[in-house]
Design a protein around this nucleic acid. Sequence first.
DNA 1: CGCCGAGTTGAACTGAATCAAGAAACGTGG
DNA 2: CCACGTTTCTTGATTCAGTTCAACTCGGCG
Lengths: 187, 187
Amino acid sequence: METFIERIDKISLLSPESKNAFLHAWEEWSVPKDHFLVRENAVAHHLFYIKNGVARIYYFKNGKEITEWIALDNQFFFSIISFFKQTPSKLIVQTIEPAKVMGIHHDKLMTLCDQHHDIERWFRKAISGSLILSQHRMDSIQFETAQQRYEKLLANNPSIIQRVPLSYIASFLGITQETLSRIRSQY
Amino acid sequence: METFIERIDKISLLSPESKNAFLHAWEEWSVPKDHFLVRENAVAHHLFYIKNGVARIYYFKNGKEITEWIALDNQFFFSIISFFKQTPSKLIVQTIEPAKVMGIHHDKLMTLCDQHHDIERWFRKAISGSLILSQHRMDSIQFETAQQRYEKLLANNPSIIQRVPLSYIASFLGITQETLSRIRSQY
DNA sequence: CGCCGAGTTGAACTGAATCAAGAAACGTGG
DNA sequence: CCACGTTTCTTGATTCAGTTCAACTCGGCG
């Protein structure tokens, strides 16, 4: 299994000193199911990494939950707009399984970016990766059918079906629960 | 009118030396209407800034043109995935009006990012901005109706209607030309 | 046992796409 | 400056993927 350090190195290599400073800046929490990492209308102070477990990012739109992201083991995730702008947002970040979560505080990360050029580079590359992901997701939502999106999810992430309620997955795919149910019944 | 330097400063301030090195790294071209800045299946070597004129980013999907972005005066724009990965892509970047365009070569920018911490920071912040934009656009495509998207475009960018053919705008909004025409006829 | 939340199924509806003609605007050569 | 062809835009009829609303099934658990 991939470790946190391997995951960091994969994005961009750091000097030993930077790496040391960087790793010490992360906190680690063991949290139960349904634990809030960021509450509604709060500022997202942390960039997260989920070591194991599942978390999701969602919000309420006309009284309905919209799941914007689901993060499984060994993924970085954060409430993008709130974290960058350091302003409150509707987005809620919550675990949906007991989880081991790492987090680095925004201010701490900014300080480290100022002090260590290679951490700044690391962060720049991490964000580039998010931007690429975001573009792919947009393309998927705009041009793929519900069925295609579901199949892609299955292919890339088979375990998600066992671990995440159908309603969250549907919303994450940008469709209703009923539609997802109908798609699944075809198999 | 906003200058190139003001636009750079707005993203993140640079030291005088860095700014000098940075500004000298940009090339400037005066190009006619319909000039290719990046051709199909080519690698996007440049990050662009359009001083005046209009450019668009598009590609062919099942024989049809899909307009992914339209850049008007004083905007940065680039073929995101191709530029970051430095791999060929279907995306074509082309002017649709005579334009004054600035561009910085990928390798040059990477070198400057290595040499100047504050240029690295500048780039990081620029990308964060793109990521925020990308998130907003995704939200818009997923939840807003064609009408709402059109009205928002009108509000944010009234001049675009005079300067860009309807078919490009429709595709940029993620709808067909016919639908856009029907929306417009309601006024 | 009976309830309760998660998932399924059915029928009607809808926003937008598609396909197919027309109408307007545009520019190029006579 | 007009005629002609081409491109751009509009209008109409039909179709479709997915939503909505409502009822129903199933498995677990107090």
